[in-house]
Write a protein that binds this DNA or RNA. Structure first.
Lengths: 145, 145
DNA sequence: ATAATAAAAGATAAAAATATCTTTTATTAT
DNA sequence: ATAATAAAAGATATTTTTATCTTTTATTAT
């Protein structure tokens, strides 16, 4: 597997898609999202539930319902999405999976790994969900396959 | 989960342990390794099988048998261990899990993610398994819990 | 040769992650 | 009010990962 769980990959793709459609003033349904980010529909539904509960996205039931985002939600960092779905181990955890690894009781890889982890953490905390809206709408970047 | 699978965490801890014991001129058995890196014994056995087949470590059956490493194996990069256990997706894969993501068909996060991935890749390719032997033997770093 | 040791190999089990299906609830339009 | 729509919630299924148990094979010491 990659850096994130499959659920988290779907989550990130979904919020990017919802964000860019929000910019167009449109709500999007699970089916439409699933098609456009290439994810299993029902499974995505579960993930969107989590994201809604966590306040990452908004949802509305019924006709013309669907998912969308508030202006302040568009500005939230990717780290929030990752934390909701995968937890924060990726930001703080030991590379070798040692529970008691720390500055004072380090694993062999502690310092080397810290650099990488901090780089990832910095990137995720300083990148906003809505930051890619234009490039997504103009087709300069993709979310499918 | 963290950056690596649990199997891979065990694998890295195991090779560090085997390496440091090789420096002491000692072969170590599965039981001893498992105790010292805090992993389930039988499961570790399976992982060590993989590492042996892949030529990351050496093994000998029978009395006084166990695992050890050759001088050239001590110099191999951590990337080799990771590749054997987790594959190379972590070095080359798209952060959002997109199969066709590339320079010419990038996902939104492509450039941001590439930096992090390259940092991790560089670290793993430029760190040798045997590099931590002294600090492990002197107790300056730990592999347990 | 025989017994003891330790890894290899194979089979099975448990847990977690991923995926699907069904029912319920909220919202809208008629 | 009623029907239609779409997410929420709950239940179940499948797959993958993690873990354990048993049998076999190789090696050593007696």
């Amino acid at each position: 597997m990659g850096m994130f769980s499959k659920s988290c990959e779907y989550a990130l793709r979904a919020v990017f898609y919802i964000a860019s459609n929000t910019l167009k003033g449109e709500r999007v349904g699970i089916k439409q999202i699933a098609e456009n980010i290439n994810s299993p529909e029902a499974f995505l539904g579960k993930i969107l539930q989590q994201l809604t509960r966590a306040g990452i996205v908004q949802s509305m039931k019924g006709p013309n319902g669907g998912f969308f985002m508030l202006p302040e939600q568009l500005k939230r960092p990717l780290a929030d999405v990752v934390a909701v779905v995968d937890g924060n181990q990726i930001f703080v955890g030991c590379g070798l999976g040692l529970t008691y690894c720390s500055e004072t009781n380090p694993c062999p890889l502690h310092n080397e790994f810290k650099k990488v982890r901090n780089e990832l953490s910095y990137m995720l905390h300083n990148t906003q969900i809505g930051e890619f809206n234009e490039q997504l709408l103009t087709g300069k970047s993709t979310l499918n396959k």
